[in-house]
Write a protein that binds this DNA or RNA. Structure first.
Length: 635
RNA sequence: GCCGGUGUGGCUCAGGGGUAGAGCAAUUCACUCGUAAUGAAUAGGUCGGGGGUUCGAUUCCCCCCACCGGCUCCA
């Protein structure tokens, strides 16, 4: 007998060799039906995995990441099987489960067309109907290689050769299809209920652009048709929120053919942008930051000194002025360095927090450009904090608090990740350890949970990244805090300590919005263009019924504008329903219908974008209401 | 940059070897109207750019550009 500890802490005894599925059946028929895999001592296994020793067992359903992955991973095998049946010449690469589905990469000469996808889907349905069990088996390395060589699968052979010594080499068979795979899988193909192939795209073998481009098919699957439909609906929703579409429709910003990656901001977009920047300035002043502005073009020598030449040249633009070489800044830090260096600093002056809304240019690959999310010029809401080593922790904590305050205002949840030393970076291991530990300590002091991204840091130091989650569950990296021991060294920055000697300050680079442009894109999609009143480019739209109400409407506009509100009046000769429809589509928070009654009573008939007709109210009451909403940044 | 797709009036889209159409928007006129589209009329395009094939190209072919979906990269 063996003892199995379940998730709820209960311990049950079973005969040695019992399968996970049998354990599930012993608990309840419902659980046995829903179970897709099991986590045994922290490792996800197939349902027919035999338990031989005492262990902890967590049964995984589609609600668990492990169960979901197994389900979709099996769907990807079904797709591969279908592709091999229809296109035997296709070579198999890899086919994992990913966040919202799965993909499989194939090496095939003729790219897949949408019609091909339909055929593949039809074949997949057949395979599901045939309900093949997935059988796992292992082979010794040389036999495994021979097996895949005979099948004519060069990518699989390469994968096997790269597996570490001693690693078990497992395969899964489902009917006429066998794939090299670590698993786990769900028991049979018939378990897959609802799936859809979504798109085809090129993808390099092993993600390396020097390798051959393969054909990747993306798809997703769910245990219920309704869940699949809901997911597809959400994809449509996301498309409707696309900031590129909304930006154009709402006249906020646009990117024109004449400037790929270089966005234009329209008057309404500038209002939004300026409101964000005003808010940013106010909050930074509160926290004792000083604002600076450094030039966009600076001498090339500076970039040699900063290390950007060696580490970032590929992404930089260069120019010549009177025979001398200059660079367009891709980052603000070297400028900040020069500002610090202008004068000698005492330890009493530190920390010194220099903030800059700095316009940077970076050369991005043409294929990487994406609306305001990925551009070639953008404004970082940057700051460089110069401090003594003792001040690191407090300063990092201060920035963490600042970022937390900002994101809350917009209604974002977020999580943090810590990135460590990458390849091709500057400095010694000791410096990196010290910097990385300082960041960890700050996070621990806050009691924040974080994920570690090994090797994902900047070339000059480790960083904490803030990933915020928008209203439809997508995450975006925005804020970052980067600790830097390198730049102060390179620029020979000093401060005079209490001992009268020169010491080396430490520096933090940090952004909150990240890029103003991208943050605006995220906000646009987050709110689906319906910005909260404090951010809305037009806050109130006055809609007079007919000509004779124009005077009062214009008087109201003047009055509201004096209160600092952003107001438009629709004086066109249109019916009220039409004016309302347009204002509603423009996502204006408040519409004021002005007719005889309002004119007589000096009142306004309020219609809220969200709640519809609120009825008439005295004009002062409306002003109080909207000012309160703006003042408190109500979402 | 790479793979695939797309490019027709401000927007959304139809068409197709004989020199272009719809809806919305715009303009004008009529209507003076109470919470998501009043009606009529008018105007607007060298069909992304360049080259080629052809009697003739927006349509077929080639090159380029931009955009979209991915890969890579990243704020």
């Amino acid at each position: 007998m063996i003892k199995v500890t379940l998730k709820d802490g209960s311990v049950k005894e079973y005969n040695k060799g019992i399968t996970i599925k049998e354990v599930a059946e012993s608990i309840s028929a419902g659980l046995a039906r829903a179970a897709l895999a099991g986590e045994v001592d922290g490792v996800v296994r197939d349902l027919n995995y035999k338990l031989e020793n005492d262990c902890t067992l967590n049964l995984l359903t589609f609600e668990n990441e492990g169960g979901r992955d197994a389900y979709r991973h099996t769907t990807s095998h079904i797709m591969a099987q279908a592709v091999k049946r229809l296109y035997p010449e296709a070579k198999l690469a890899i086919g994992p489960a990913i966040e919202n589905g799965f993909y499989y990469d194939f090496d095939i000469d003729k790219p897949f067309s949408p019609e091909d996808l339909e055929k593949i889907e039809a074949e997949m349905s057949k395979i599901i109907k045939e309900d093949h069990p997935l059988e796992r088996f292992t082979l010794p390395r040389d036999e495994a290689i021979k097996f895949m060589e005979e099948k004519g699968e060069p990518y699989k052979v390469e994968l096997i050769r790269d597996l570490p010594e001693g690693e078990e080499i497992s395969f899964y068979r489902q009917g006429d299809f066998v794939d090299l795979c670590a698993g786990p899988h769900i028991p049979s193909t018939g378990k897959v209920k609802a799936f859809k192939l979504l798109s085809v795209a090129g993808a390099y073998w092993r993600g390396n652009e020097k390798n051959k481009m393969l054909q990747r098919i993306y798809g997703t699957s769910f245990p219920k048709k309704s869940e699949l439909d809901e997911y597809l609906f959400r994809l449509e929703e996301a498309k409707k929120r696309d900031h590129r579409k909304l930006g154009r429709e709402l006249d906020l910003f646009d990117i024109l053919e004449e400037g790929p990656g270089f966005p234009f901001f329209m008057p309404k977009g500038m209002i939004l942008r300026n409101v964000l920047e005003d808010f940013w300035r106010k909050e930074h002043r509160k926290r004792k930051y000083q604002e600076i502005k450094t030039p966009v073009i600076l001498n090339e020598d500076l970039w040699h000194r900063s290390g950007h030449w060696d580490h970032y040249k590929e992404n930089m633009y260069f120019t010549k002025i009177d025979e001398a070489n200059y660079a367009i800044k891709p980052m603000n830090c070297p400028g900040g360095m020069l500002v610090y260096k202008r004068r000698l600093h005492s330890y009493r002056d530190l920390p010194q927090r220099l903030a800059e809304l700095g316009l940077v240019h970076r050369h991005e690959l043409s294929g990487a450009l994406h609306g305001l999310m990925r551009v070639r010029c953008f404004t970082q809401d940057d700051a460089h904090i110069f401090m003594t080593p003792e001040q690191i922790k407090d300063e990092v904590l201060g920035v963490i608090d600042l970022i937390d305050d900002f994101y809350k205002v917009f209604g974002f949840k977020y999580h943090v990740e810590l990135s460590t030393r990458p390849e091709n970076s500057m400095g010694t291991d000791e410096q990196w350890d010290m910097a990385t530990n300082a960041l960890k300590e700050a996070l621990d002091a806050k009691g924040m949970e974080y994920k570690i991204n090994e090797g994902d840091g900047a070339f000059y130091g480790p960083k904490i990244d803030f990933h915020l989650e928008d209203s439809i569950g997508r995450t975006w990296q925005c804020g970052t805090i980067q600790l830097d021991f390198q730049m102060p060294e390179r620029f020979d920055l000093v401060y005079i300590g209490p001992d009268g000697e020169k010491h080396r300050p430490v520096m933090i680079h940090r952004v909150v919005f990240g890029s103003i442009e991208r943050f605006i894109a995220i906000l646009t999609e987050h709110y689906a263009g319906a910005f909260p009143t404090w951010l809305a480019p037009v806050q109130v739209k006055i809609l007079p019924l007919v000509d004779k109400h124009h005077d009062y409407a214009l008087e109201l506009q003047k009055l509201f504008e004096d209160k600092g509100l952003r107001v438009e009046v629709d004086l066109r000769n249109e019916k009220i329903g039409y004016k309302i429809r347009e204002a509603q589509l423009e996502k204006v928070p408040y519409m004021l219908v002005i007719g005889d009654k309002e004119t007589e009573n000096r009142a306004v008939a309020v219609r809220s974008r969200k709640e519809g007709d609120l009825g008439p109210m005295p004009m002062e009451q409306f002003i109080d209401r909207i000012l309160y909403e703006i003042e408190n940044k109500i979402i």
